[in-house]
Design a protein around this nucleic acid. Structure first.
Length: 469
RNA sequence: UCCGGCGUAGCUCAGUCGGUAGAGCGGGUGGCUGUUAACCACCAUGUCGGGGGUUCGAGUCCCUCCGCCGGAGCCA
């Protein structure tokens, strides 16, 4: 092998190697077309960008008959040659190979699951180990990475610290949602207490433990020292929900800011969404063009509109009034005190406002115990950010920082104050107003790409009866 | 979990009134072409999701189980 340096396809297509210079690429064959002019065209992808590199393999290659003419989709190859201006349409440059080495064959091309054709997303889910070789999943993968990096960059640039809140939690105070148990007890024959119950005292942690459903309560502790913090990590829900919007394991982003109220929180959410989607449109034009053409023709326009808009602020009570006065007939009735249905959220952001809107100050009875009670005594400082085309994209709140009010809410909801020891301590020692929000990472990807099923924007989806890979 | 739909070739699907299965793509072979998911011709391909039932006969009708998809609920 010669000393020609290796390059990524993305770099070559971007002109990193001048025409006339030599380069080596490594990747997987997408398609092969033979020309009786005495050459074959082999499209090679290495995942570095949406487009493959066209490798021109002339019949003069020593292994042309033996190898090149046997190439099928999925073969792994290494090609070295001169970068030349393309004679054909569809690419600016191509690699005229003087060596083309097959690193790994596809042993049975007929049953290779990834054929050079359109597959259904359902089928691709059944071959999750091979689906990153498709246009759509590789594009999702690059978008997912770019958004993740954009999120970290957004927070880092604003002085936030990434706090690694625990995956395993012994707190059963997190509230909503069924949790996965974490245990080393013998499931078939667990130790029992005198009254016949499972004795979790003998379990690994000496008490019941679960996978976390939210990092918020933990991250609040670091907020009360570091001022600006966020979590970005996996989250688990054992709900038996089988929809295109739910996973048993998903990633969530939860910033938390000290010395801040609900309005600061809403502003953070607005800045956040605009920033990460600006980065996405800027850095992944190729993939977004693909989604726009083949998945959701409105996705780029939707993001551009969000970036350019100023988010509206709307009081919950005002939202109810507007909904009650709407000419549109809703499946669900509208009344103060109820939670907004998806159809209501869509109407508010799409019909009434026509751009993203933060709905503020919800009735306390439909919201969590930790949300700050407003002076009216019947609403809490909660917010939902609604966006055209999707509805709710972010949910957040100002947290109750007054110990006596928090205790009253815990009691009111029938919760056990003993379960909230360390959380209450934050209100005893230097408490300050603070707020935060939660964003489901996969839903943010769905919103950007238009991918309808959430199982297609995470590499290995976990859902009821689905954990094969 | 509830409601609805679907399950036929490697993939996407068609299959009428119940009479032992077809197309396109993909694969193989050949032709043609600086080709772009190329094109043309030919060839091969099936436990019709599993089990049970009705019938002379079931891909088709009935029961049941499994799986998948969509919607609802729950939510991120």
């Amino acid at each position: 092998m010669d000393t020609v340096s290796k390059h990524r396809v993305a770099d070559l297509l971007a002109g990193a190697v001048a025409v006339g210079e030599r380069a080596t690429i490594e990747g997987w064959v997408r398609t092969r077309r033979d020309s009786k002019a005495g050459l074959s065209f082999v499209h090679v992808s290495d995942g570095s960008c949406f487009d493959p590199l066209q490798v021109v393999a002339p019949q003069e290659l020593a292994n042309y008959q033996a190898d090149v003419l046997r190439l099928t989709a999925g073969c792994a190859v290494r090609a070295t040659g001169e970068i030349v201006a393309s004679q054909g349409k569809g690419q600016s440059v191509e690699l005229r190979a003087d060596t083309l080495e097959v690193v790994g064959w596809v042993d049975d091309p007929e049953t290779y699951p990834m054929q050079p054709k359109r597959h259904t997303m359902e089928y691709l889910r059944e071959v999750a180990h091979l689906r990153p070789r498709t246009n759509v999943i590789s594009a999702v993968t690059r978008v997912r990475h770019t958004l993740a990096m954009a999120i970290h960059r957004f927070f880092h640039d604003r002085g936030f610290f990434w706090v690694h809140t625990p995956i395993i939690t012994a707190s059963d105070a997190e509230g909503a949602g069924e949790m996965f148990r974490v245990s080393t007890l013998d499931a078939a024959n667990p130790p029992r207490t005198a009254d016949g119950k499972v004795d979790f005292n003998q379990d690994f942690f000496g008490r019941e433990a679960h996978l976390t459903v939210s990092g918020q309560l933990n991250v609040e502790t670091y907020c009360m020292a570091m001022s600006r913090v966020y979590t970005f990590g996996p989250t688990f829900r054992a709900e038996n929900s089988n929809t295109r919007r739910h996973l048993a394991e998903f990633w969530m982003i939860e910033p938390e800011i000290a010395f801040a109220d609900l309005r600061d929180d809403a502003q953070l959410a607005e800045d956040f969404l605009k920033s990460i989607y600006t980065t996405l449109l800027d850095e992944r034009k190729d993939d977004m063009a693909f989604f726009e053409k083949h998945v959701d023709k409105d996705c780029v326009r939707r993001l551009a509109a969000m970036i350019e808009s100023t988010f509206e602020r709307l009081d919950y009570g005002e939202a109810i009034k507007q909904l009650e006065g709407a000419k549109k007939k809703f499946e669900f009735g509208v009344k103060w005190g109820m939670d907004l249905q998806s159809e209501h959220e869509r109407w508010l952001t799409e019909e009434l406002v026509g751009r993203p809107v933060a709905v503020l100050d919800y009735p306390k009875d439909i919201k969590a115990f930790y949300m700050r009670l407003n002076d009216d005594g019947r609403t809490v400082a909660a917010m939902d950010v609604l966006a055209p085309g999707i509805g709710e994209i972010i949910g957040g709140s100002q947290r109750e920082e007054r110990l006596d009010v928090l205790d009253a809410r815990i009691a009111e909801l029938g919760l056990d104050v003993a379960d909230y020891g360390w959380y209450r301590d934050l209100r005893r020692y230097g408490t300050v107003p603070h707020a935060g929000f939660g964003l489901g990472f996969e839903r943010a990807i769905q919103y950007a790409t238009g991918i309808e099923n959430i199982r297609d924007v995470i590499p290995f989806p976990r859902a009821p009866r689905q954990a094969e890979f």
